[in-house]
Design a protein around this nucleic acid. Structure first.
Lengths: 191, 191
DNA sequence: GTCTATACGGTGATAGAC
DNA sequence: GTCTATCACCGTATAGAC
């Protein structure tokens, strides 16, 4: 299959999945939206609905951008690194807000199978970043690395969710604040 | 309908929703599990599948327990209050781990409609708790209340998710740590 | 009221003719 | 690529028995 037809189908599937959910979007609807007049046209390119969704997750995830941020972020010390990485990741996720919905679908329908596969590839780079933070200095050494990452990730997620809620993606409006990480950094910094 | 038949149906629906998801659990399966030989037996008690799910969310949510914790938690100062509330809420959510899955279903299938309704009743008490924390002293006054709540909630959620992942509810195992809140409190405390 | 039996249009998916 | 059937299953509605 050419890359054009593939992207055409993925775009149709994405639009429907985002607006009507996974089970709310039928293969017949996706086929129609993609310009086919019969469902079989879809099954010529993707084995089944699940394979179509997996292709969508593989194509739309922020994997590359997150890896780039973690590898290239700079800072004078640990707190500076954390602050810069947090801001850079927030900026990345602004462009991937719709991916949040795909992630939810993955969690619900496939027990997070597809996102976990991607996470497996990102995790090594995350650990490498955490070690960079620790070695850059200015961070309390009595805080374990997993604990620091859980706090960092939790705040990042809560910031993304607050952002998504504010933009009406998942619910109703709520005020967003970009400095939530500063409180954590204050707690992590050496006295 | 008697409370027995109601709880019988809810238990059957919960077991199936948790193990096979919302669309993976058919009304026929639920009816069978609840002891009926025809689907219609279900429709005598719940108007449709969505109403059945809503009743389940209403019946299984931690609303009462969370309200009780927020109203009754004590502490010598702000940091102490935050620490005690965090621990108490963590303890509550241990008993409601399966509710996480119902929450996910609500987010995915109903845009979080049912959980938002519950949240609307909890929020006033949450704000009252935040003001108690601030007035109890020992907390930086330059940190806005919504920011403090977002950080507190984000860490609570990340702790719950880490717990759920560790228990295999949502995915594969990961180490859990109960002191993630201490880092935040360190950042919130007055110098 | 509570249960059973049956029926309707939709679904994901397959098979075959053009 | 298109059409058309066909399959089992889905949520739901209805008619009727006790």
């Amino acid at each position: 299959m050419t890359d054009d037809t593939r992207q055409n189908i993925l775009a149709a599937a994405e639009a429907l999945f985002l607006s009507h959910g996974y089970h709310g979007s039928s293969m017949r609807q996706i086929a129609k939206q993609a310009g086919y007049s019969a469902v079989s046209g879809l099954y010529n390119h993707f084995g089944n609905k699940e394979a179509l969704f997996e292709a969508l997750i593989q194509d739309r995830n922020p994997y590359q951008d997150v890896l780039a941020v973690l590898a290239e972020v700079e800072g004078q010390d640990g707190p500076d690194l954390l602050r810069n990485a947090f801001a850079a990741l927030q900026a990345v996720f602004v462009d991937y807000q719709t991916f949040l919905k795909l992630l939810l679908i993955d969690l619900n329908e496939f027990e997070g199978r597809f996102v976990r596969a991607i996470w497996g590839e990102v995790m090594p780079e995350v650990l490498r970043f955490a070690q960079r933070v620790r070695q850059a200095g200015g961070i309390r050494q009595d805080v374990a690395l997993p604990l620091m990452l859980q706090a960092f990730g939790g705040l990042l997620i809560s910031s993304m969710v607050a952002n998504a809620v504010a933009s009406g993606l998942l619910g109703q409006a709520a005020p967003s604040d970009e400095t939530v990480i500063d409180v954590l950094i204050e707690g992590l910094a050496v006295d």
